[in-house]
Simulated assay, not measured.
Amino acid sequence: MKKMKEKIGIFLAIALACIFGAGIGWLMADYADYNAEINRTGASVGETLFQAAKPLIIAYVWIGVQTIIHEAGHLVFGLLTGYHFSSFRIGSFMWVKREGRIRFARYSLAGTGGQCLLAPPDMQDGRFPYVLYHMGGSLMNLLSAVLAGGIAALCHSMGAETAGKSFVIAAAIGAVYALINGIPMRLGTIDNDGYNACATGKNPGALRANWLQLKVNEQMTAGVRLKDMPEAWFAMPADEEMKNGMTAVVGVFACNRLMDEKRFAEADREMERLLSMDTGIVGLHRSLMKGDRIFCELLGEGRKERIDKLRDKEQRKVAKAMKKFPAVLRTEYAYALLEEKDGEKAGKIREEFEKMAEKYPYPCDIEAERELMETADSCSREG
């Protein structure tokens, strides 16, 4: 059933993307006559190519604008319901609040075009506001689509057909964003906003799990490592609770904390157990957990058959997409050092890590990963 729901979500996303593609084709047709005209009058090749590419340029501009609008929606509705600013990201450009100041950083997450993370208000009687924060992005996209549609109608009434069609495309992109993010779906390696909102509302445990995720992020932004946060936050949920996508993240955090505490054997057992179960853990976290298991195995018995099994297609695909993520670089470093015995390659990976670390938004993560890399260094010297 879970696989079927994922396929339905992906199919719907493709269908909505096709609607967007059809709109681009419609806009391109508007420029066809103009291109033919400038060709007849001897226009330059550069001008002709620019006119042909203009519809795509317009579309990409509106995609960027709608991404900003979406994340701004999370920010606005979050602030209105008692949240506090933590970070705001578009693409890999991120602004994060640390030590009372907004600082620029670089960070990307596979499967996301942006992300707005806020510090949640305190829970009252086991509850806190979550619906508007989760759905604020889709609501803002929908509002912008209505506004763009109104402008398109105004342009049409004034005879500005080309400008009108551009705003029709803007309205279509806004609607697509609202639907893809608002209709509950599991899209590849991540869950969308609608899915997270539904998962949060399933039961009190899921609601608390959502609050904990935001509190953990708030503490990380403040420079606190997982091992130094309250232990009660990282209690492993019951097996049945792990089927909820929101609660499952707490299980992932519990394993991450064990890694930070260097309790590698225990972390590996827990990750092996979770990966073998039917849980709500998203594909992204599953692949990162496989990477952590590879690291644990490299420090332990170093069984090649187990390492090769963990380095499957899914894990390698995510590692490639997140090649600048600290945990990914740490595992690749250990693999080069302990499995491939290639000190030169390991050195280059370490250089990439340090370069990435200069603008990474969470210094506590960098500190933890450096310690794990030093642990790999110790194992290499002992070997």
Rank of each mutant, 00 (worst) to 15 (best):
E6I: 13
A13T: 13
W26V: 09
L56Q: 02
I57K: 06
I63H: 03
G73D: 04
V76C: 08
G78F: 09
L80V: 07
Y83R: 06
Y83G: 01
S86D: 10
R89H: 05
I90W: 01
S92R: 06
S92L: 02
F93G: 00
M94S: 13
W95T: 07
W95K: 09
Q115E: 13
C116P: 04
R127K: 15
Y130H: 13
M135K: 07
M140S: 12
A145N: 05
L154V: 07
C155E: 11
A171F: 06
L179M: 13
N181L: 03
D193P: 05
D193S: 06
N196R: 13
L214V: 00
N217I: 01
N217V: 01
V224G: 10
M229D: 00
F234Y: 12
D239S: 14
E240K: 13
F253Q: 10
L258M: 12
M259N: 04
D260A: 12
E261H: 01
R269Y: 07
H285Y: 11
E301C: 04
E305V: 15
Q315D: 02
R316A: 05
V328S: 09
K345G: 05
E351V: 11
E351W: 03
K359I: 03
P361K: 05
Y362G: 09
P363L: 06
I366R: 09
A376R: 07
E382T: 03
G383F: 00
